[in-house]
Computed example of a mutant assay.
Amino acid sequence: MNKSLGIISLVVFISGCAVNSGIIPMGNNTYMVSRQAATGFSGMGTLKAEAMKEAYSQCIQSQKAVKIIEEIDAKPPFILGNYPKTEIKFKCVAEE
């Protein structure tokens, strides 16, 4: 029973370490959003998709389109605190 409790505690602790910035306004209709995995075992695809979904949600509120300014992704190997991470800087612009 103690071993099970220890494993459950570890899983809860690790899952609580993921970092999601939410939408950060940078001025002039420019924003940043970032996502970081809690471990090195997750892939970049899901993180990037979640960040892009958040960016699109931000711009849709003002009936605008997303224009990506910069994408920064963590480089492997994903060990010793270098976990998968993506940062997206974007603008909400009028649709063409």
Rank of each mutant, 00 (worst) to 15 (best):
I8K: 12
Q36M: 15
E70W: 06
L5S: 14
C92Y: 09
K67H: 08
F90K: 08
S62Q: 13
G22E: 05
E95V: 14
K67A: 08
N2F: 06
F41C: 02
S9T: 10
A65T: 14
S57N: 09
N2H: 08
I14W: 10
K85Q: 08
I88T: 07
N2R: 13
Q58T: 15
Q61M: 06
I79S: 03
A37W: 00
V11Y: 06
A49Y: 11
Q63G: 02
I60D: 15
M52H: 05
S21P: 15
I60M: 01
M32H: 04
S21N: 04
G43R: 07
A18C: 09
E71P: 01
A74R: 07
I23Y: 01
N20A: 05
E95C: 01
A51I: 11
L80N: 10
F13M: 15
S34A: 11
A94L: 10
Q61D: 14
A55N: 10
G40H: 05
A18I: 02
I88R: 00
A38W: 10
M26C: 02
S4Y: 02
G6W: 02
N82S: 13
L80P: 02
I7D: 13
M32T: 15
N29A: 15
Y56M: 04
K85F: 12
N2Q: 13
I72E: 13
E95N: 12
I88F: 03
I88L: 05
K3D: 12
P84D: 03
F41R: 05
Q63R: 13
M32Y: 07
T30R: 14
Y56L: 03
K85E: 15
K3N: 09
Q63L: 08
P84M: 01
Q36N: 07
I69C: 00
I79Y: 04
N28Y: 10
T30E: 15
P77G: 12
S62L: 03
K64H: 05
P76A: 12
I79K: 07
I60W: 01
G40F: 01
F13G: 02
K91N: 14
I7Q: 05
A51Y: 10
I72H: 07
I24R: 12
M26Q: 12
F78L: 04
K67I: 00
V11S: 11
K67Q: 13
I68Y: 02
A74E: 15
G81T: 14
K67R: 12
Q58L: 05
E95Q: 09
L10K: 02
G6K: 14
G45I: 00
E50N: 15
M44D: 04
I24S: 05
A65R: 15
Y83V: 12
K48L: 08
M32C: 02
A74M: 08
K75M: 10
G6T: 01
K85M: 06
G6P: 00
V19H: 09
K85T: 13
A38F: 13
Y31W: 12
G22T: 10
